[in-house]
Amino acid sequence: MSEEVKNPITEKIESTKGGHFYKEIMKDFRIKESLHGCLNCGTCVANCPAAAFYDYSPREVCQMMIEGDEETIEEYMKSKIWNCAQCFSCKYRCPKENSAADIVMTMREIAVREGLAAEALAGYTRIAKLVLTRGNQLAPDMLSPDAFPDWGPRMIELSSKKMEMREELFKGFPGMNVVDRAWAAEDFTIYEMQRIWEESGALEKVGTVFPFLVDIVQDDMEDKKEEMEAKIEAKKAKLAAAGK
């Protein structure tokens, strides 16, 4: 049930409790571990790197989830949650063992699902694609100097020599000398990863932000499906035999 709180004199609505976002967040099972009331002591804010630079407060995150004011929650869902650096300093030192960082994580998940994250995830296409098609999150190739101007001129120099440098470093370590991904995860492994994303509903969620990525992944899976499923069946049989 939604609940309105009015200013007793002007009778203007001051806050609305129990709106849509509030309910969605409270449904997540992590909330009961992340929020146990709040002493308003400020230990979290004192240690928070995001609070030092942004209009963001882990204490406010806890308080707003206790008060449930939809307007404040919406403001966070739309932008402020992306300020958190996920360093968990708030969780580490909270005397009530709350975790604003975990609440923020829950909210980020819901923001993606609810289609509020397009702007925040604008720079994420390549990483999401890499995870879903290569099985790991980073590749030496991604570190093009124009994408990382902060990293200075030496980075440009290293970037141009990376192939021979890696070859020298990883002599005798098959699978490590690659530049289009972090290491050469096998096709079967990538397929298993894709299955997990599909089965867990995570792939569908990716579709809310990067619809084309879902097509790429599904095509990729389809191409190798027969061979891979046969491998999985063999694994299942082996597991069943071991169980007996």
């Binding site: 002591c41 400020g42 804010v45 609070a51």
Partner: peptide
């Protein structure tokens, strides 16, 4: 945190 003033 100066919690009344909302600032670290």
């Amino acid at each position: 945190e100066e919690t009344i003033m909302d600032r670290p």
